[in-house]
Write a protein that binds this DNA or RNA. Structure first.
Lengths: 340, 340
DNA sequence: AAAATCTTCGAAAACGTTGTCGTAAAACTA
DNA sequence: TAGTTTTACGACAACGTTTTCGAAGATTTT
């Protein structure tokens, strides 16, 4: 690791200057004469000197990097958010490192602490489906690490949050199903304590109510692992199809749940939307080549990532502590295809 | 950042011991008496002390973390590889951080240098479609940072490599298309200098030759950005369909190219496989709900990730320099569905 | 009882950087 | 010319660890 690394010390030796002089010259300090500065800079450039950011971080407590913690990356919603994050972060000269929790509470705690102690400058987080407890985030936040949440956000923690208008999205999708003539609409969703679950459920319920339809518990199925475990979705769907009053439509609440549900229905050789219609929250770029083409509630994922990053950088670079936090809500878009 | 952080110094003050004693006690050194050790450990546990890995890294030149550099994460092949990487890395107590290059040479260089100087212990890389030049990897490797390549590997650099049996995979897929009666088989692939491109092309050509079919340049289309830019694929496809002898089948060489091609054919309302059959390299988990269900050459992505990580850890933890490097080749699987 | 050996700990250096402070020489002021 | 300010640089401490070395006290060996 160390063999070829070039440090300030090498430059100082070669040029017969002190390390502090070299450091200051490199940073363009006014204490150093123009000649010395250009001498140092020229030489540093020539031998391809790169400052060691971890030493800088140690010294300054800043590292110009931000970490993203998401449940999974194999999910177009999250990967699009990450692209949004990178678009802003790179522009502002921050590096972005990504870690996934696989919906595991334990991994989330570990990775949070890891990022904290490797001193990233901030965290952008969407909470794992298993994480009922969010103390680990509160802890690092109290120690001065800025955190911004998106999508799955905790009520408890005071900070910036960026979400899609989940209520509206679920409302419109349900409304659409009702307009198509469906009366028994089921909802397959994630862990009941996640913010997105509550918000989307609320939209679903309101649409039913507005249309004078009953809200039936038997039509609402929670998947504790957010669809990570296929059996979970399979069981939920199976229970729905075993009901006396089988649902004639389903609203699925997440990317993974949507594709898994369609996949199972296809396996069961069920006619979509003939026997059962399907609308789901999903940002998959392949929705139009699904069979049938998938009606989707699409979240402004890229925008969410951009917004979260702007807010985070604001927190990081603010001189004095910020206390009035905002919750940005971005609108979803309902794209109707053939599955409904 | 620093406010709440607990350091060895805090412990040493509280217990009236020197920092060196505390450090050694924490690491279980035999120089420290059992009582002192348990005293220190108990106290450290109680106040929730966490060693600062970046300081450890500075001191020891090791950080117990490895970085993964891939073109994109919104791609089931790469996300599955990453899952394989994490499965081994976490077991061996390494943290995994992920960065994407978006097929950009420039970003690849930047992120490589960034990881090097934040002193990760090793790199697992699949090269960007733009990167004809791989000097940046050679450079960090010469400075002592172990690198393992997978999937898109450079010929030039001597190190461990893990790839799918691309030749065999392409051969079987082409063979299958021929058996289905197709005689004009096109091949849409990535940048011509990528290893996977050459290997898959070779398999395609051999299958044609074995069956006494001509190899025609007009049927072979390269996409310099690996399908990242949709127009690229669109143009390639358009040119193929404008030929006098339109192809009656296509073999696509990557995840993104496969879905994009199907998507465009769907837009063009072409009958797949009636007018044109399709087989492609892809690890998408949604292949069975595509319209039509997609015939896929599936790579053992998870296994590739696992293998690459085992080899990397071996490089990292080896006492003396390793010079006999291996290239592991893992078999693909052809899953025939309805698109061919 | 003196000498040798352990045992247990602390002082200090090191990793690569930055920032504070001190200081010699040069430039100005009176 | 003496005094004051400015310029341009170097010494040193600090960030949080680990490790080498030395040394005091305890224990064992002769």
């Amino acid at each position: 690791m160390k063999s070829g690394t070039i440090t300030i010390k090498d430059i100082s030796k070669a040029l017969g200057l002190s390390v502090s002089t070299v450091s200051k010259a490199l940073r363009g300090s006014h204490e150093i004469s123009a000649e010395t500065q250009s001498l140092v800079k020229e030489y540093a450039g020539r031998i391809n000197y790169k400052p060691n950011p971890i030493a800088q971080g140690l010294r300054k407590g800043k590292s110009k990097s931000i970490a993203v913690i998401v449940p999974n990356i194999d999910n177009n919603f999250f990967s699009q958010v990450i692209n949004g994050i990178e678009s802003i972060a790179h522009k502002k000269d921050y590096n972005v490192i990504i870690t996934q929790t696989h919906e595991s509470y334990e991994r989330e705690v570990l990775t949070t602490q890891h990022h904290f102690s490797r001193s990233v400058d901030g965290l952008i987080v969407s909470i794992s489906a298993e994480s009922e407890n969010v103390d680990h985030f509160e802890e690092v936040q109290n120690k001065g690490l800025p955190v911004v949440f998106f999508d799955r956000v905790p009520d408890k923690i005071k900070t910036h949050k960026v979400i899609a208008n989940n209520l509206q999205g679920a409302f419109e999708a349900t409304q659409h199903l009702i307009q198509q003539g469906h009366r028994h609409i089921a909802h397959i969703t994630s862990s009941d304590f996640l913010s997105i679950t509550a918000e989307r459920l609320e939209g679903y319920i309101r649409a039913l109510e507005v249309n004078g339809l009953p809200v039936e518990d038997q039509y609402i199925k929670y998947c504790a692992h957010g669809g990570m475990i296929k059996e979970e979705t399979y069981d939920a769907l199976h229970e729905l199809l075993a009901l006396k009053n089988k649902p004639d439509a389903i609203l699925t609440a997440s990317d993974r749940l949507s594709t898994t549900t369609l996949s199972i229905l296809t396996q069961l050789k069920m006619n979509v939307p003939g026997e059962i219609a399907l609308v789901g929250f999903t940002n998959t770029i392949s929705a139009d080549i699904f069979n049938p083409p998938f009606s989707a509630v699409v979240q402004p994922a890229f925008e969410i990532g951009k917004t979260a990053t702007e807010l985070l950088v604001q927190l990081i670079e603010s001189k004095r502590p910020i206390s009035n936090f905002e919750k940005r809500v971005l609108n979803t878009e309902l794209i109707i295809r053939k599955s409904s």
